[in-house]
Computed example of a mutant assay.
Amino acid sequence: MTSFLHFPATSSLPSSLRGPSLAARPNPTSLSQTRVKCRYAEAGVKSEDFNSGAIDVVADVRPERVVVLGGSGFVGSAICKAAVSKGIEVVGVSRSGRPTYSGSWIDQVNWVPGDVFYVNWDEVLLGATAVVSTIGGFGSEEQMQRINGEANVIAVNAAKEYGVPKFVLISVHDYNLPPFLLSSGYFTGKRKAESEVLSKYPNSGVVLRPGFIYGKRKVDGFEIPLDLIGEPVERILRATESFTKPLSSLPASDLLLAPPVSVDDVAFAAINAIREDDFFGIFTIAQIKEAAEKVRV
């Protein structure tokens, strides 16, 4: 998740900074397609008969190019790293730009500093085959609505306008919390973003709903080993699932009983979403782990 900074209302921004207009854009597909022509002839065909026995094949190949919003954050960097490991071209967008720590995969990512309220979409979305948004954060009610909801809505609409065929949103588990807690800006912002994804991308939009995400989180040069807590808790909850399941209907019970999710599982589930045409809709904690296993090898 990215940290939150206050942004001015979109309506107060100069028109050049408000994101893409609804004017016609260049067709990104035409910019990123590679045309391949090959010929095939069955064995035994004489050279003089080659033309009559040959088959011309023309294929349109669109290279995988994923844009990760919040790419230098905890979840975003894991997705960038996983995508690079699978040979996918990656553009990482975040306010801080390139991460300050080192890693061989970092040099293979095209880092673009900026945020969705000001970013030049021409620079990042042309030719993209998928957008993954990890944007989210905490703060005042207004701030949480803006960063969890409005920022993601802007990103979804920009991706749709530029013809990006897939959008993946990293959201949050559907906790059975009391209504007064679920009405907070954090949750209502996330659900607003989810609705936009599923509305604009009904057959290709993906919403991943993890609970507590653990892993080695880097903050200001320090590494916070969240896996020391998350991993054993996940194992215990999965081992005792048959005993704790009857308690899941109790209000707020899944704050304790929803299994934590490895940041690598979230990342690989996102890669599965990027690559599989039949992968769309809302995915729960268990489904995220299942999806990750399919591409982890």
Results as ranks from 00 to 15, higher is better:
Tyr101Asp: 10
Ser12Ala: 12
Gly19Ser: 11
Glu161Pro: 02
Ile271Cys: 06
Ser16Lys: 01
Tyr175Cys: 00
Phe138Thr: 00
Leu198Ser: 06
Asn148Ala: 10
Gly139Ser: 02
Asn152Glu: 05
Ala151Val: 00
Gly103Ala: 07
Val172Ala: 10
Thr100Phe: 15
Gly103Gln: 07
Lys190Trp: 03
Ala155Gln: 03
Leu181Arg: 02
Pro251Lys: 05
Asp278Arg: 10
Asp227Cys: 07
Thr284Ile: 10
Thr240Glu: 08
Ser96Tyr: 11
Met144Asn: 05
Gly103Asn: 10
Pro20Met: 12
Tyr40Thr: 02
Asn110Val: 07
Lys81Glu: 09
Asp227Gln: 12
Phe283His: 04
Asp122Ser: 15
Gly114Asn: 12
Pro99His: 03
Val90His: 09
Asp264His: 07
Val58Cys: 09
Phe280Ile: 03
Val197Trp: 10
Ser199Met: 01
Ala291Pro: 03
Ile271Val: 12
Ser183Glu: 13
Leu181Val: 00
Ala78Lys: 00
Val219His: 10
Gly281Val: 00
Val207Asn: 01
Lys37Val: 14
Gln287Leu: 05
Ser15Met: 11
Thr29Met: 10
Ser16Ile: 07
Phe187His: 07
Glu234Gln: 06
Asn272Cys: 14
Thr244Trp: 12
Ile154Arg: 11
Pro178Ala: 06
Glu234Thr: 00
Val263Ala: 13
Ile288Asn: 01
Ser262Met: 04
Leu31Met: 13
Thr10Phe: 13
Val58Arg: 10
Val45Met: 08
Met1Leu: 04
Gln108Ile: 02
Ile213Ser: 09
Glu276Cys: 14
Pro113Cys: 03
Val168Ile: 09
Lys81Asn: 14
Asp277Phe: 04
Gly92Ile: 00
Trp121Gln: 05
Glu276Met: 08
Val91Ser: 02
Cys80Gly: 00
Asp277Asn: 05
Val119Gly: 04
Lys86Ala: 04
Pro113Tyr: 09
Gly163Thr: 00
Tyr214Met: 07
Phe167Tyr: 13
Ser3Thr: 02
Ile147Asp: 03
Glu64His: 15
Phe180Ile: 04
Ser102Asn: 07
Leu181Ser: 11
Gly76Ile: 06
Glu64Gln: 15
Gly73Asn: 08
Lys81Phe: 08
Ala130Arg: 06
Val93Pro: 10
Ser195Asn: 09
Asn157Cys: 09
Gly70Ala: 02
Asp107Trp: 01
Met144Ala: 03
Gly139Lys: 02
Arg39Gly: 06
Gly185Gln: 07
Phe243Trp: 06
Asn27Leu: 02
Tyr162Asn: 05
Gly205Met: 08
Ile147Thr: 08
